[in-house]
Design a protein around this nucleic acid. Structure first.
Lengths: 213, 213
DNA sequence: ATCCTTTTGTGAAAAGAATCACGACTTCTA
DNA sequence: TAGAAGTCGTGATTCTTTTCACAAAAGGAT
């Protein structure tokens, strides 16, 4: 529980982790903050600063040892412990997640899904069982994280049931801003807003004048 | 092109817009920054500051007039002009977007999709035609924005074709960090990273001690 | 009319994040 | 072995964003 890692840094850690994995698969054994910067599109000084919160992980004049860094992040990101995840709502988006292979390079596993539609219940997508949403409380035993892909109108109600069932983290894909007790963490991903905000930036902001093909 | 709206503010605008719409549908004619704060979960001082970049939109002791504010944002967010969008890659995620009704409360419309699979090409999902990906350059005429939902390995190659075809904004759902010329804007949404970072925050950060049911 | 309550808009302060710039150390080359 | 080149780690700086806190204005009540 090392406090003091800035949130901005924490958000970049999984990104670094994935690219280091790529590097290792490519057989590279060392990497500089400059190379990494090119790959992940984050300023090299920022990368060095990010890493430095965890101590001196690199060597001057050499860079970072890929394997060592990877091992370090594996521990830091809890890659050894698997986090079980449930999908709530097997619509188009929910189905997309069921097919998404989170396990690769990741410490999370989708272990069950729920839906209100009796036609979907009982099926099995990619080995993941779909349960009736009425059984939420009963089935959610070893699951701490839920991905919410249901209609916005259901969001708050279902959220309250999730919380009672012991969920501690919610990835909310509905447009609703849900309320939760303070021990539950919610991340919002609002697809319509992302699209709209991209368009706004295109229309109103002179481009930052960086990157090239 | 009013420069000087902070990016953080710009990202919240579509959110405000949507909630104001909700309020209007509920028949409310006035709203205070405090009420709005409760609904969108953004500090009320931040909301007032955000609004203030556009001038004095409210009245002291009263709050904001919903209709007036809405009209103002409609103009600011370009709600009157429709932005055409193309989906690149009709897999599970791409299909989910095709079914997603962006038009409601939104100034964007999905007008076409592309896929490499001959079995998908020629079909029509929710009135949106699916073209072969080879025809990208030919078909993308009045489209400025693309949503990228293809395998990561294809991302950079297809991106370069999109850019040549005149695309100016890309919503990238692949894990690849794509390179583009500086006049093209890219927003990354990396689902695996979002999930991983939620787990990291759950494990490492004492909860911020706010919100309640 | 008067007073009380509500609520904005914004200076000023604080917090958070990115970037600059350079000393120190390492590796590489000859 | 010596000199050149490369790269980290980090103080200091700058930039961005959030939050505090309060004067000024408006509405509402009696």
């Amino acid at each position: 529980m090392e406090r003091k890692i800035p949130q901005a840094t924490a958000k970049r850690l999984p990104l670094y982790y994935r690219f280091l994995n790529n590097l290792q698969h490519q057989g590279k054994s060392r990497v500089s903050s400059k190379e990494l910067s090119l790959a992940v599109k984050v300023d090299s000084a920022t990368i060095r600063r990010d890493f430095s919160y965890f101590g001196a992980l690199g060597k001057k004049g050499y860079g970072y040892n890929v394997e060592y860094l990877l091992g370090f992040f594996r521990k830091t990101l809890n890659q050894d412990e698997l986090t079980n995840v449930a999908i709530i709502g097997v619509g188009n988006l929910g189905t997309a997640f069921l097919h998404y292979n989170f396990l690769k390079n990741n410490n999370t596993k989708i272990v069950m899904a729920f839906d209100a539609d009796p036609k979907k219940v009982g099926q099995d997508v990619e080995g993941v069982p779909i349960y009736p949403i009425d059984n939420l409380e009963e089935k959610l035993k070893d699951v701490r994280v839920a991905i919410l892909t249901i209609p916005a109108s259901e969001a708050q109600g279902v959220t309250e049931r999730l919380v009672k069932a012991g969920i501690e983290g919610i990835l909310n894909f509905t447009p609703a801003r849900i309320s939760v007790p303070n021990y539950v963490r919610v991340h919002h991903i609002d697809l319509a807003i992302e699209l709209q905000s991209l368009v706004y930036f295109m229309n109103h902001y002179p481009l930052p004048d960086k990157e090239e093909i």
